[in-house]
Amino acid sequence: MNKSSFFIAGQHAVIEALRNPNRKVLRVFLTEDAKKNIHRKNPNKNVLEDVKVYFKSKKELDKFTSNEQLMHGGYIAEIEHLDQPKLKEFIKEKQNCTLVCLDEVTDPRNIGSLIRSASSFNIDGLIIKERQFPKESKLLYKSASGCMEHLNIFQVSNINSTLKNLKEKNFWVYGFDARGEKNFTEVKWEGKNILLFGSEGFGMREHTGKYADFFVKIDINKKIESLNISNSAAIVFHHLSYLKKKLEVK
C-alpha cells in the first residue's frame, strides 16, 4: 500500500530526512548552493544518490512555503511518513523509561521545538493524540530541526486510556502544573515515568489530570505567570538527562 506524501522545508529537516535510512524521500528541490552544502555536510556518502533532484531558484522554491511564511533556505523535499512505532511493543520489558505526553497541545511550532529538545536530551518517546498531531506540517518539521527523524512518536487515539494502560504497567504519571505542590527537581526520576504537559493556553484537561499520580511545577520568577510549553519541557528534559549522566558516572 502506498503511503501518502507531503512536503517539508529547511536545511536540517531535509538533510536529516535524507540521512535516515527508514525515511522514503521521493523528490528534493534545491538551489545550487543547497546542493553543494549537502555534499559538504555528507562527505562520506552521497545522500542524493537514489533521490530525484530538481534544481530551482530561491524564488521558485518560495511557492512551497509562501502559505506558511516559512524560510526554506533552498531546501524542499517530498517525503513519506515513517512507519509508526507501537507503544505496547516499545515499552515491553523496559525497566527505565521516560516518555512525554501532550494533552491538547496543537501548535506545530511548540510541538516541533519540544521534539527537538526531547531528542537532544534522550527522552524515549512522545505520546500525542493522533487527531491533534500536525504530522504533515512544514512548520512542525522546520521547528524540530531534523529531530523528527530521531524521536519515537506514538500517535494514540485516546490520551486518557493510554495513560490508564501505562499506569497498569507500572509507569508513574507526573502532571506539570504551575499549581503543583512540589518542584520537579525534588523528584528522584527513577524507573518508568510519564511527563504530562497540558495545552498552551488552557493547561491540562481536568479529566486527563485525574490520571496524574503527582503534580509538579517548575520554580520561576513569581512575577512571571508561566513559561512557553517547549521551554518548560526543555528545562525538564535537561534536568533528567543530567541526573541520568550522574548515575552512569557512579
Rank of each mutant, 00 (worst) to 15 (best):
M1R: 01
K3G: 01
S4N: 05
S4D: 00
F6T: 01
A9K: 12
A9E: 01
Q11T: 08
A13G: 05
V14N: 09
I15D: 09
E16T: 10
E16P: 02
L18C: 00
L18Y: 07
P21V: 01
L26Q: 00
R27I: 06
L30F: 13
A34E: 11
K36T: 08
H39N: 12
H39K: 13
K41L: 15
P43S: 06
N44Q: 13
K45D: 11
E49W: 08
E49I: 05
K52T: 10
V53I: 12
V53H: 01
K56D: 00
S57K: 15
L61I: 08
L61D: 00
L61M: 04
D62G: 09
K63V: 12
F64K: 02
S66W: 11
E68A: 07
E68P: 09
E68H: 12
M71T: 13
M71I: 14
G73I: 07
Y75S: 01
Y75F: 13
I76Y: 04
A77G: 03
A77R: 03
E78N: 03
L82A: 00
P85V: 00
P85K: 02
K88I: 13
E89Y: 12
F90K: 04
K92E: 08
K92N: 04
Q95D: 14
N96P: 11
N96T: 15
T98P: 07
L99A: 05
V100T: 06
L102C: 09
V105Y: 03
L114I: 15
I115N: 06
R116P: 09
R116C: 08
S120M: 15
F121R: 04
I123M: 09
D124Q: 08
I127Y: 00
I127W: 01
R131M: 10
K135A: 00
E136F: 01
K138R: 14
K138F: 02
L139F: 07
L139H: 10
L140I: 02
S143V: 03
S143A: 15
S145N: 08
G146H: 10
G146Q: 04
N152H: 07
I153V: 03
F154T: 02
S157F: 05
S157W: 03
N160W: 05
N160M: 14
N160F: 12
N165V: 07
K167M: 13
V173P: 00
G175H: 02
G175C: 05
F176G: 11
D177T: 08
A178E: 14
G180Y: 06
E181Q: 13
N183A: 14
T185A: 12
T185P: 07
E186V: 11
E186M: 14
V187A: 12
E190W: 08
G191P: 08
N193I: 13
I194A: 04
L196C: 07
F197E: 00
G198Y: 04
G198S: 06
E200S: 07
G203H: 05
R205Y: 02
T208C: 05
K210N: 11
A212R: 09
D213T: 11
F214Q: 15
V216D: 04
V216W: 02
I220N: 11
K222C: 12
K222E: 12
I224C: 11
E225I: 11
S226G: 09
L227R: 06
N228E: 03
S230M: 06
N231F: 11
N231I: 14
S232R: 07
A233C: 10
F237T: 05
F237M: 02
L240E: 01
L240C: 12
L240G: 09
K244R: 14
L247N: 11
L247W: 10
